[in-house]
């Protein structure tokens, strides 16, 4: 197992490359989740404001 990790002496280049690959794709996959939460929060705030305004004008 250790020589697998050693990657023929090039471990210092192969594993960081794979780390960057998975890190960037993980971030790319997770980024919309944050945007989704923010979008829903803003939408709910707008809905709440509208219902208050409708309540006040009724």
């Amino acid at each position: 197992m250790t020589d697998f990790l050693a990657m023929g002496g090039y471990a210092a280049y192969v594993w960081p490359a794979y780390a960057v690959f998975f890190a960037v794709l993980a971030w790319d996959y997770a980024a919309p989740a944050l945007r989704r939460r923010r979008a829903l929060r803003e939408l709910r705030a707008r809905l709440a404001r509208q219902s208050v305004r409708k309540g006040a004008s009724a």
Binding site: G8, Y10, V14, F21
Partner: peptide, 10 residues
Amino acid sequence: GDAYRIIFIH
């Protein structure tokens, strides 16, 4: 040697 294995993501 094994350095070429980066090809599989590059």
